[in-house]
Design a protein around this nucleic acid. Structure first.
Length: 288
DNA sequence: CAATCAACCTGGGTGC
DNA sequence: TGCACCCAGGTTGATT
């Protein structure tokens, strides 16, 4: 599931391969006609042809290709999208929807098993609006424990659901929310506004830690994620709770059996001992 | 305004 | 071995 670290991995690898290259052709798989979008009245294919890729940026889980002063291409991988860089002669990648031929004999290929991903050719004001409605990047200087504590003040939902809301903070998904809450020892069903300043500070530190580690490991490949070379990321080997709550696996910190819940409509794994809910009996939480 | 939840998809896994 | 489910989740949009 591409979250911030996976999208950043794609950006870092793709950028040097495509920046400065011009788009010479577009191929679309007729089976998947809905993937390439543009504003009303704009033809996405003719808008792309001849454009030079000036930069590749990331905002939250969105990849932003700058195509001159007045045009962008925005890609969202959603759950199973992949963006690969291959030779122009290479056969279609698995579930290929779209191919973008470049003037150096390489192609950018977009593939998506589940048709949720999107490629949108768009105008600068639309990209500004997109960025405006997203929360800040977790690594922004303004994002401190005090900032998070203030941002959570008006939120009465569960902390896990609030962290999945891209309007609050951009880039977190199910994997890294579970990992960060575990690291910060905060129960996923805690009411957001009840977190103390100390807890919010711990949480933002944990978020940054899990994201930084995952980027260093080139992302988590749980099922389908691949970088633009078609390689898996290694971060799945370092996950401490995500995906481990259904097999009677134990907490890597205290050995208690991990538990599985649905929070915010998403599968959630946590340690019931390390991540206590206030009001729960804490007398059994003696050191392991 | 904020919270909740269904809908969108389909390969892979499970249970019988 | 076959088959009918069920599950995974990022985002949007409807509803409360």
């Amino acid at each position: 599931m591409p979250e911030l670290p996976e999208v950043e991995t794609v950006r870092r690898i793709a950028a040097p391969l495509v920046i400065g290259r011009s788009i010479t052709g577009i191929t679309m798989n007729p089976t998947f006609t809905c993937v390439l979008e543009a504003p009303d009245g704009m033809d996405p294919v003719s808008s792309l042809i001849g454009r030079t890729i000036m930069d590749v940026e990331r905002r939250g889980k969105y990849l932003l290709f700058l195509l001159g002063a007045d045009l962008w291409m925005v890609i969202h991988l959603r759950m199973t999208g992949r963006l690969l860089v291959v030779d122009h002669q290479a056969s279609p990648v698995r579930f290929e929807h779209l191919g973008i031929a470049l003037d150096n004999g390489k192609d950018l290929r977009f593939g998506d098993q589940r048709k949720f991903g999107r490629v949108r050719v768009t105008l600068p004001e639309e990209v500004e609006a997109l960025s405006f409605r997203l929360g800040p990047e977790p690594f922004d200087r303004q994002v401190t424990g005090r900032w998070l504590h203030g941002a959570l003040e008006r939120r009465s939902g569960k902390i896990k659901a609030v962290l999945l809301d891209q309007h609050l903070l951009a880039g977190l998904g199910n994997i890294y929310v579970d990992e960060a809450l575990f690291r910060a020892r905060i129960h996923p069903e805690r009411i957001a506004r009840n977190l103390s300043l100390e807890e919010a500070t711990r949480l933002i530190g944990a978020i940054r830690h899990v994201l930084r580690s995952a980027i260093a490991n080139q992302g988590t490949t749980f099922s389908s994620f691949e970088n633009p070379y078609g390689e898996a990321g290694s971060n799945a080997d370092f996950l401490r709770v995500y995906g481990k709550g259904r097999g009677a696996l134990s907490c890597p910190r205290c050995g208690t059996a991990l538990e599985h819940l649905v929070v915010g409509g998403r599968g959630t794994t946590f340690c019931p001992r390390c991540q206590l809910l206030p009001g729960q009996d804490t007398s059994s939480a003696s050191p392991a």
